[in-house]
C-alpha cells in the first residue's frame, strides 16, 4: 500500500535511535509484519533499498518476520487463527470474523555498529 511511507518512518526511527544510542551504521533491521497489515513485503524491500540509500542504513539487511493472523469469531465467541483476512472460521466454518491480530508493523531491533 504505502510501503515507501513505511520505509520513511522506519528510516526516521533508525535515525532517532542512532542519535539516542550513538551509532552511525545499521547492519541489520528486524521487523515483525502481520499477515493482515496490508504490507507487500517485496514492495517494502524495494522501498527500503531506495529510502536508505545514502543513510546510516544503506545496505542494511532487512529481516522480516511474518506474524500469523488472528480473528474474533462472532459465532464461536472466541479468537481463532486465520490464514488470510477473508478466511472462514476454522472451528465453525462461519464468515462473521473480525481480524483482531496479525496487523502488527513493528520494528523489533537493530544490529548496529
Amino acid at each position: 500500500m504505502h510501503e515507501m511511507a513505511l520505509c520513511e518512518s522506519l528510516l526516521l526511527a533508525m535515525e532517532e535511535s542512532g542519535r539516542a544510542n550513538a551509532f552511525t551504521r545499521v547492519r541489520r533491521v528486524r521487523l515483525e509484519i502481520g499477515r493482515f497489515a496490508g504490507v507487500e513485503i517485496e514492495a517494502l524491500r524495494f522501498g527500503f533499498d531506495v529510502v536508505t540509500r545514502g543513510s546510516l542504513a544503506e545496505g542494511a539487511e532487512l529481516v522480516i518476520q511474518e506474524v500469523p493472523g488472528r480473528g474474533w469469531c462472532f459465532t464461536c465467541n472466541e479468537t481463532v487463527s486465520l490464514d488470510h483476512r477473508l478466511a472462514s472460521c476454522p472451528s465453525c466454518g462461519g464468515d462473521r470474523i473480525q481480524p483482531s491480530g496479525g496487523t502488527e508493523m513493528t520494528i523489533k531491533d537493530l544490529e548496529v555498529e
Partner: peptide
C-alpha cells in the same frame, strides 16, 4: 567478531504517526 551490538526498539513502524 565485529563491533556490532543490538538495539532493541520494539515500536510500531508508524509509531510516529
Amino acid at each position: 567478531l565485529t563491533q556490532t551490538r543490538m538495539i532493541e526498539i520494539e515500536r510500531g513502524i508508524l509509531s510516529k504517526n
